[in-house]
Design a protein around this nucleic acid. Structure first.
Length: 312
RNA sequence: UCAUAACGAUU
């Protein structure tokens, strides 16, 4: 049944719950007993596609089966489903039902509720729960940090980041990502840059979107030298730029009339296989024309054609 | 073999 479970998980993750239920039928037909993992997988599949009620029903049906008692994972999965729908009251109700039936919530259960409260706009309630928890991990902290960042409380978020490290909990790429996008939204670019650096020093490879938001802020503030420097570090650290990264930088250089660098970036972009969209091309070409660099403008169009792209 | 956190970031 392990193989069946794996197939079902694949189907569920692809959003194909109904197919997964067909597999369940096949299992039963072939004398293979579904186990608690099978049902948990189905519950998760249903919750992922917003069929939480049905997921909850599957959980209840588990109670009638031998050796398939609903576990902490079953309940937690349903709680997650309700949290994602923003139905926190329902989520809490399931939690209570879980406790009544003798199943103890674990750290994952609490982490999910923390996130649910934060995402529902109730950071205070998340804070309350966080204060009552006895056990924390990097997810608990990152969830709260993200919650604070999303409501503009980066100071509180940083405080938690220090606190977690004092407890020996190490921030990971999720933690940095939450903090950095929080700082970027507040236009605290200096802080964002510092955290990017700290992250690299710790050997964590950042994600492209993290660099993009920092680069965007820095470019728009007109500090192209710094943007270029961060871009260098990004490449050195092994983080791959994408089309958006190049778009940000090309724009930035155009705005500062640094056309040769803009052109250089454009060619680099083509070389690494990023397809520029018409918006960047239009911006670049029109800037070149304004700067009376007609030859260069033409050559941009030619490079595009040579690569098989069609500029409109 | 099952459940949790960051990203719709460029125009």
């Amino acid at each position: 049944s392990i193989s069946f479970n794996i197939v079902m998980k694949g189907l569920c993750n692809a959003g194909n719950v109904d197919e997964a239920f067909k597999v369940l039928k096949e299992m039963e037909g072939s004398g293979c007993d579904p186990d608690y993992v099978t049902f948990n997988t189905l519950i998760n599949g249903l919750c992922r596609v917003s069929r939480v009620e049905e997921g909850f029903r599957v959980l209840r049906e588990m109670r009638g089966r031998k050796n398939c008692r609903p576990s902490v994972v079953s309940y937690t999965t349903v709680i997650l489903g309700y949290c994602r729908e923003g139905k926190l009251d329902e989520a809490v109700r399931v939690l209570e039902e879980m406790v009544e039936s003798g199943e103890k919530p674990n750290l994952v259960t609490y982490n999910i509720l923390l996130d649910g409260f934060c995402k529902a706009g109730n950071v205070k309630r998340a804070e309350g729960l966080f204060g009552k928890m006895v056990d924390y991990d990097v997810v608990s902290y990152t969830t709260m940090i993200d919650g604070y960042c999303k409501v503009g409380q980066t100071g509180e978020a940083i405080r938690l980041m220090n606190e977690m490290q004092a407890k020996g909990i190490v921030p990971n790429v999720y933690t940095y990502s939450a903090m950095i996008s929080g700082f970027c939204k507040e236009n605290k670019l200096g802080e964002a840059v510092c955290l990017l650096e700290e992250m690299r020093e710790r050997g964590i490879i950042g994600k492209t979107f993290m660099y993009n938001s920092v680069l965007d802020g820095i470019s728009k503030s007109g500090n192209l030298d710094q943007a270029n420097q961060i871009f260098e570090k990004m490449l050195e650290s092994g983080c791959k730029p994408n089309k958006i990264t190049y778009t940000i930088l090309i724009y930035g250089h155009c705005m500062k009339a640094r056309m040769n660098e803009a052109i250089g970036l454009f060619h680099e972009m083509l070389q690494v296989g990023c397809e520029p969209d018409n918006v960047v091309v239009a911006a670049l070409v029109s800037c070149l024309l304004k700067a009376a660099m007609h030859k260069e403008a033409k050559s941009i169009i030619h490079s595009l054609l040579a690569k098989g792209f069609s500029p409109d």
